[in-house]
């Protein structure tokens, strides 16, 4: 890839890149695979995995290029700003994605339940279709879809996980201070703590899920409660995992001596992302586990 050698004060414009098209092809294969898989075709699984590998390859390549360019110092302050705008609005779009599921949760709890119970102008919904159904939460609906289950408690693992994530938010900030002070030891150690905390969160959640399925008989199919619970916490867990992986990458880069006290966008991007994951969890803890 020829990179236009603009003077440092110029805005860096890369020339030509093969990564996007590879990414598109990868995503296409992944999704085509997933689709055929869902429709019960065996080869779908294979395609799906192949596609994911291609996407991974793209990510390594793309990020690799960017890192190399960054270290070679072609990114001036203005380019850095573009990245910041980009990352912050990407995170905002993620917030809206979670918003859709929170919205579903609120709607189901605050409106659908009362309606099924016959409130406001839905009286006959209850009388004719769901006679005797009492609105409640947690609920798997008048059809008792998925059978009786034991709901999640705000105490126990959930509380512990809250503690873990909040602490991790703190440790990553301390790591940032370390980076700013040029204190690499501090940076790396606290990054490490953060990562450990992150992965232990994931581990605990996995444990929580297993309990849910085996002991509490609470599954994705347990009506609206199961649906909202697993979709919300599931997508969040996915984000924690991704975040933790990104942190790991950052750790290795720090060990390699990347980043300068005044020039470390990648680190900040990941820590923003981490804080976002953190905040979403608070929302989850309050609205899914607690209230």
């Amino acid at each position: 890839m020829s990179a236009e050698a603009h003077a440092g004060n110029h805005y860096y414009v890369p020339h030509g890149t093969q990564w996007p098209i590879i990414g598109s092809i990868g995503l296409f294969i992944t999704m085509f695979g997933a689709g055929t898989w869902l429709e019960g075709m065996a080869f779908g699984k294979v395609l799906f995995v192949i596609g994911l590998l291609v996407v991974l390859f793209m990510m390594f390549g793309w990020f690799g290029t960017v890192i190399r360019e960054s270290e070679s110092g072609v990114y001036n302050a203005q380019v850095d700003r573009s990245f910041r705008w980009g990352m912050s609005w990407f995170i905002f779009s993620e917030v809206m994605f979670f918003g859709a599921f929170f919205g579903a949760l609120f709607f189901a709890r605050m409106f659908v339940q009362p309606w099924l119970g016959g409130s406001s102008n839905a009286l006959f919904t209850n009388l004719l279709l769901w006679k005797g159904y009492e609105p409640a939460w947690p609920s798997n609906g008048p059809g008792n879809v998925g059978g009786d289950f034991e709901a999640m408690k705000a105490t126990g693992i959930a509380a512990l996980n809250t503690l873990i994530l909040l602490t991790s938010g703190l440790t990553v900030t301390i790591a940032h201070w370390g980076l700013k002070e040029g204190n690499r030891k501090k940076l790396c150690w606290f990054l490490l703590f953060t990562i450990i905390l992150g992965f232990s969160f994931v581990a605990l959640q996995a444990h929580e899920y297993i309990d849910a399925y085996t002991k509490q008989h609470l599954t994705l199919g347990s009506g609206i409660y199961g649906s909202t619970f697993f979709m919300l916490t599931g997508f969040h867990g996915l984000h924690v995992t991704i975040g933790a992986i990104m942190l790991t990458v950052i750790l290795f880069r720090s060990l390699k001596g990347h980043f300068k006290p005044d020039h470390h966008f990648a680190f900040e991007a990941v820590s923003w992302y981490w804080h976002f994951v953190d905040v979403v969890w608070l929302g989850l803890y309050i609205f899914v586990y607690w209230l």
Binding site: W130, G141, V145, G146, G226, S227, M231
Partner: peptide, 9 residues
Amino acid sequence: TSFFNAAGG
């Protein structure tokens, strides 16, 4: 899941 299914709430 039962997001859009009344029986499931």
